[in-house]
Design a protein around this nucleic acid. Structure first.
Length: 971
RNA sequence: GGGUGAUUAGCUCAGUGGUAGAGCGCUUCGUUCACAUCGAAGAUGUCGGGAGUUCGAAUCUCUCAUCACCCA
């Protein structure tokens, strides 16, 4: 074997060998009927592997490899998501960069051809990256959420079930069941992509913003007495006003105001409720008047207590408008520009005025009205905002304040400075929450549009019930709370998108606006009647609608495939906390609605992978760790082991290069254990079943192996991946390499032929067990060593996972003896180091008393102890010679006669320190045992354990005291 | 404002009522025939503060503080 494992050279070669042998295929290595299936959370077809994917897929691969080795009929189903917005964006960018005609120029059909072409070329990127990580997905089944859609050339997902048909069928079924409807509602509108997006795709970010305060004059020059009181009811301000003061962060939306609302209990405005006020923008001669109404929504303690109601451009306002039958005037077009359609402003304002005075209206009539003044039409919303502010201020309708008002923020003049008492418009500078599109990064505009919705309330019941009853379990448990909270307050799900790349909605309209929902145009035509002219709804479905069907869709539903019968419901879903709502909850709802079955029995949620300081990785922060660079530098196994060790349930995930280095070193350690085995003829031993050796050392390590096998299984059973990793790390490094290998040297290199043979056989088995148990976490290095270390029937990936137990294999006598030996060696080493005995020097050891068991242990392990503790000889003495360092062991008192080298002071200090520690422990133990209530109420084994512990500590203390006394005599 | 969670060694974090742990880092020593990507030895803790329940609390309860995330 080479000196170290060459990951860069070996990984590709090993992966190809697995693939060529069909090791990942569904059912490969199955020895039982029991199935185990994981659906990969489909990465975006535009995606590149990031640390989150690396983490997430490592855990999936561990579970998959573990089950496959255990003989389950295993399927890890891979695939990609068509990612509507992101893909459309990528392709548009590509068209622009290569000087090709843009999307609109090409038209829908040609553009979609380009998208398919792009998908064929780049869509497989992430698959290749997952392979570098070692993911053992059944790639021949690679699925795609747009498979089977018109124009699909079937590149990269040749065997994918027809997802398109499944999606269309579900839409039609849900429509027919009344779960899907079309309606005009306020949705989040992305002005960049010109499409509706879901509220989950909106990021609310706090930005530095402004709050303007304006006066809305009362109609007809009316006035009222405005009275402000403090908490005790004392009047602090009383003045005659002819206006009501309104604050807003979006002045351009004032053009669409339908009312001003105040809280019903707000006495300040009671005199003017029901009157009209004037919106202070637009041409003076056509100024619109709107009613002052009461509603529970305004907070009397916030701002002026009065809120303008712009139903078409704000979610809270929309609710108020609906409650009070206030018209919702749409002000913007799809690009977020002020509307330029409709009649001249004068005419539109007149119409609106009639509605404000009580004329009945319909939604369509209101939507047709364009209340943007002629001079603002066509402007970008932010430019319009600037103009509106200027116009109002110029007219003197801005609320004024002193120039040193701190609310002005950075624009305020310092108190006492020149101009501090001047009056300026009150424009508060304050942080405000602003919605941004998570893909486009532009400010999202609430917009009143026609969209398709899933009436989620109607299908949420079974999804809630499934988790409440435990049919599906969410790990960590806190995820269940979050799940309930969201589902219990679920909103209608807007599923239409104004995009081209996606599943086009299977609905056709006739010329009268009636619609027909059917899987095909022919069927829609049949519904509409012959000769009726139909046009298809141009919108496509939200990508999450199709990925909501991922579990059944990838298995071939609606066809009754063998895979569907065998692997559905699937077993575990491993995904990020952040898509609990986006995806997990929706899969639950949809699978239950469509096939009346939960999609999986366990959901494992994990946190975002962050940098070593706990910061989110982002390009702008420059702290992004590229998993592929890590794989290049340290090997995939090191990254995988790090991810596994980080994976505490619910834990924060902080990735650092230091940790990765540490686990790369662990791989090297394992490698060198194998090299040692090779050099000692272990590779030549034929692999055996569980060995039943005679020598204590070998019996001991067999038992230790059984213990760690149980630990690993228990940890993986309960998704404590970190515990599995730590147990194996401690076993391989701390037990096998630190002790077993060292102890084996005298046996392997000694004269006793039987001992040598037995040790070789045991070591072979131990090495194999290490490889098997580590394989799910570190597949490459283990497979490589497996191949190098002997003739094998099967590759390690298909080796049988062991089932032996500690109860069968642990020999408690061997266990006790080896712990005694290890303890003795550690004590001697510690004493030597503290006495500054040269490391290489062999020294004599004496013993005053030693019981039978101790003597037997010594006799059996003399060679090991002498070698590892650097002992020259053991002599029985009556009393410790002067200047001897005492080593207390169970059943024996040893001494290192170091008169020449001994530093009495140092030795005294050493003993006193140890005694100090002992005294503390003894105090605690005695205190507890002296307490009658402890003896009464604590479980018997705890009391027993405490007693035994006390006895052992007391024995040790006595020996050390004796030693200390002898030392004092000497001094 | 609502919700969820966190606070344990210098750092990063495990630890669901019974002797406070790991990795990294640090100090000292060491090129003995698997491994310097290594070995040996060592130091380091009012388990965020306070109160309570209990024979016994890092762990359960309450409270305060600080921080993080999600949703408004």
């Amino acid at each position: 074997m080479e000196k170290t494992f060459n990951a860069a050279e070996a990984e590709g070669r090993i992966y190809r060998a697995w693939e060529e042998a069909g090791c990942f295929r569904a059912g490969a290595n199955a020895r039982s009927e029991e199935s185990f299936c994981i659906m990969i959370p489909p990465p975006n077809v535009t995606g590149a592997l990031h640390v989150g994917h690396a983490f997430n897929n490592t855990l999936q691969d561990i579970l998959i490899r573990w089950h496959r080795m255990r003989g389950f009929d295993t399927l890890w189903q891979p695939g990609q998501d068509h990612a509507g917005i992101a893909t459309q964006l990528q392709v548009e960018k590509m068209l622009a960069a290569t000087g090709q005609p843009g999307r609109r120029e090409l038209g829908r059909e040609k553009f979609l051809e380009k998208v398919w072409e792009w998908k064929g070329k780049y869509g497989g990127t992430i698959i290749e990256q997952l392979k570098r990580l070692g993911c053992s997905c059944d790639w021949e089944r690679n699925a795609f959420t747009m498979a089977g859609a018109p124009g699909d050339p079937r590149t990269g997902h040749e065997n994918s079930p027809n997802f398109h048909d499944a999606v269309i069928k579900v839409f039609v079924d849900m429509y027919n069941k009344g779960y899907i409807y079309r309606g005009k509602r306020l949705v989040n509108w992305d002005p960049h992509f010109e499409t509706a997006i879901s509220d989950l795709e909106v990021e609310n970010i706090e930005v530095q913003g402004h709050m303007w305060h304006f006066k809305y004059p009362l109609a007809g020059g009316e006035t009222y007495t405005y009275v402000e009181r403090d908490e005790d009811g004392n009047v602090i301000l009383e003045e005659e006003r002819d206006y009501i003061s309104i604050a807003t962060t979006r002045p351009e939306t004032m053009l669409g105001d339908g009312a001003v609302a105040v809280h019903p209990s707000d006495e300040r405005y009671a005199p003017i409720v029901g009157k009209l006020c004037e919106i202070p923008v637009g041409p003076k001669e056509h100024r619109r008047q709107i009613p002052i109404i009461t509603d529970e929504y305004p907070d009397p303690n916030f701002g002026s207590g009065a809120v303008k109601i712009t139903g078409a451009h704000d979610f809270n306002d929309y609710a108020v408008a609906r409650r009070n039958n206030i018209p919702c005037y749409r002000l913007m077009d799809t690009r977020g520009h002020m509307r330029a359609d409709g009649a001249p402003y004068a005419e539109e304002a007149r119409k609106a005025q009639e509605y404000a005075r009580g004329k009945p209206f319909t939604e369509a009539e209101i939507d047709a009205i364009n209340l943007v003044p002629d001079d603002l039409r066509g402007l970008d919303r932010f430019e319009a905002r600037k103009r509106v502010v200027e116009q109002i201020t110029a007219e003197g309708l801005a609320v004024m304040t002193r120039a040193d008002d701190p609310r002005l923020g950075p624009n305020a003049v310092k108190p006492g400075e020149e101009g501090a008492d001047a009056l300026v418009p009150l424009v508060e500078s304050k942080p405000i929450m602003q919605p941004f599109g998570d893909r486009s990064k532009v400010v999202i505009e609430p917009m009143l549009t026609d969209q398709w919705f899933v009436d989620a309330e109607k299908i949420v019941g079974p999804a809630l019930e499934a988790v409440r009853s435990g049919r599906t379990k969410i790990i960590p448990e806190s995820g269940e709370k979050t799940y309930y909270h969201w589902l219990e307050n679920i909103e209608p799900w807007c599923i239409s998108r104004q995009l081209w790349w996606g599943h086009q909605i299977p609905v056709w309209y006739d010329e009268d606006g009636n619609h027909y929902c059917a899987p095909t145009e022919q069927e829609a035509q049949a519904m509409a009647g012959e000769g009726v002219k139909l046009t298809r709804d141009p919108d496509v479905l939200d990508t999450w609608f199709s990925s909501g069907l991922w579990p059944i869709g990838t298995l071939g539903w609606p066809e009754d495939t063998p895979e569907l019968r065998r692997y559905f419901p699937t077993d575990v879903l491993i995904t990020g906390f952040d898509i609990l709502f986006f995806w997990v909850a929706r899969m639950m709802m949809m699978q239950l609605a469509v096939v009346n079955e939960v999609p999986f029995h366990t959901v494992y949620l994990h946190q975002l992978v962050r940098d070593e300081k706990g910061k989110k990785m982002s390009k702008t922060a420059g702290n992004v760790i590229d998993p592929l660079e890590i794989v290049d530098e340290f090997g995939a196994d090191a990254l995988r082991f790090t991810n596994t060790a980080m994976a505490a349930i619910g834990g924060v995930l902080k990735l650092s290069r230091e940790r990765i280095t540490g686990y790369r070193n662990f791989g090297t350690k394992l490698w060198n254990f194998a090299r040692f085995a090779e050099m000692n003829g272990v590779f030549e031993v034929e692999a055996h079943d569980i060995p039943r050796p005679q020598r204590t050392l070998n019996r001991w390590i067999v038992g230790e192996t059984a213990k760690v096998r149980e630990e690993v299984d228990a940890a993986l059973e309960s998704f404590r991946f970190n515990d599995a990793a730590h147990a194996l790390y401690a076993f391989v490094w701390g037990k096998v390499c630190d002790w077993y290998v060292e102890f084996s040297k005298p046996l392997l290199q000694g004269e006793d032929e039987a001992a040598r043979a037995e040790t070789r056989e045991t070591m072979k088995w131990v090495l194999d067990q290490c490889l098997i148990l580590l394989h799910p976490i570190m597949p490459f290095i283990t497979e490589e060593i497996w191949g190098l270390s002997g003739q094998r029937d099967k590759m390690l990936i298909h080796a049988d996972w062991p089932e032996y137990t500690a109860a069968d294999l642990v020999d408690s006598a061997a266990d006790h003896e080896m712990n005694w030996v290890i303890g003795l060696i550690e004590s001697i080493r510690s004493a030597r180091a503290q006495m500054h005995v040269p490391a290489g020097l062999y020294v004599p050891l004496v013993v005053t008393e030693i019981d039978e068991r101790g003597q037997a242990a010594w006799d059996r392990n003399e060679a090991l102890i002498k070698r590892l503790a650097r002992i020259e000889s053991l002599t029985r003495v009556e009393a410790m010679p002067k200047g001897t360092i005492t080593i207390a062991a169970e059943g024996a008192t040893f001494g290192l006669p170091l008169a020449d080298v001994i530093d009495i002071g140092a030795e005294k200090a050493r003993l006193e320190k140890t005694l100090g520690k002992l005294a503390k422990e003894l105090g605690g133990l005695r205190g507890r045992l002296k307490n009658p209530k402890f003896v009464e109420s604590a479980p018997e084994e705890v009391v027993e354990e405490t007693r035994a512990n006390l006895a052992a500590r007391e024995e040790e203390e006595a020996k050390l005291r004796e030693a200390l006394e002898r030392l004092s005599e000497l001094a």
